[in-house]
Amino acid sequence: MGKFNVRPDIDAAAEKAGPALGSKREIQQLPSVLWEGEHVDSLATGVYGGGNGLVALTDRRLVFFKHGIMGQKLEDFPLTNISSVQWTAGLLMGTLSVFASGNRADIKSVAKAQGEALSGRLRMLLATPATQAAPAVAPVGAPDVASRLATLEQLRAAGAISDAEYGERRAAILASI
């Protein structure tokens, strides 16, 4: 997406993502919609809710942001509310499907390389304990590990993670006990 001199984390994510494809305004305005201390990890462009905009993955949420001349659209999905993510790709473009709070949001027309990178990074963030919602009463020892392993198995069964990712994450969970 190029160099924008907005903020170091945003500039780094934009460089990793490649060409901006109509999201220059959104990248420049992104700091205005971020929370204090929020760090941008990955960026992509896509179509959601009838508008072409910017998809930003931060350390706290996935954000779709469209900043137009006549108005703006912002929708965010806190990482703690996302149960899974699905990436479906064609030859050049794909669809990022986010499952959060019992709903499904499809962000379409995402460039293949951007979508693969963003969905992979999002899966990694979802599998880390820091982004998983804390239970009302934290179980001790085995039940916590069992629930994490069950969630991991559901992600693999849904095709949200590969067998290799499953093996790595399962080993990490077992190593944590």
Results as ranks from 00 to 15, higher is better:
residue 1 M to K: 07
residue 3 K to T: 12
residue 4 F to P: 09
residue 5 N to Q: 13
residue 5 N to F: 15
residue 9 D to Q: 06
residue 9 D to P: 05
residue 11 D to Y: 08
residue 12 A to Y: 04
residue 12 A to S: 14
residue 12 A to R: 11
residue 14 A to H: 06
residue 15 E to R: 11
residue 16 K to E: 14
residue 18 G to P: 08
residue 19 P to V: 05
residue 24 K to W: 08
residue 25 R to S: 14
residue 26 E to M: 15
residue 28 Q to H: 14
residue 29 Q to W: 11
residue 35 W to I: 07
residue 38 E to F: 01
residue 40 V to P: 02
residue 43 L to C: 06
residue 43 L to K: 02
residue 45 T to K: 11
residue 46 G to K: 02
residue 49 G to Y: 05
residue 51 G to E: 14
residue 52 N to M: 05
residue 53 G to T: 01
residue 54 L to E: 06
residue 56 A to V: 01
residue 62 L to Q: 01
residue 67 H to F: 03
residue 68 G to W: 06
residue 73 K to E: 11
residue 74 L to M: 10
residue 75 E to K: 12
residue 77 F to T: 00
residue 77 F to V: 01
residue 78 P to W: 04
residue 78 P to A: 03
residue 82 I to S: 00
residue 83 S to Q: 10
residue 85 V to H: 02
residue 93 M to I: 08
residue 95 T to G: 04
residue 95 T to E: 05
residue 97 S to C: 03
residue 98 V to F: 00
residue 99 F to C: 02
residue 102 G to H: 09
residue 104 R to Y: 03
residue 105 A to G: 02
residue 107 I to M: 03
residue 108 K to D: 10
residue 109 S to R: 12
residue 110 V to A: 04
residue 112 K to I: 03
residue 112 K to L: 14
residue 118 L to P: 01
residue 118 L to H: 00
residue 119 S to H: 00
residue 119 S to T: 05
residue 120 G to E: 00
residue 123 R to F: 02
residue 124 M to N: 03
residue 125 L to V: 01
residue 126 L to D: 00
residue 129 P to M: 10
residue 130 A to N: 10
residue 136 A to W: 10
residue 136 A to H: 08
residue 137 V to P: 03
residue 139 P to Q: 14
residue 141 G to W: 09
residue 142 A to N: 08
residue 142 A to T: 09
residue 145 V to P: 02
residue 147 S to D: 14
residue 162 S to R: 01
residue 164 A to N: 05
residue 164 A to H: 05
residue 168 E to I: 06
residue 175 A to N: 12
residue 176 S to P: 06
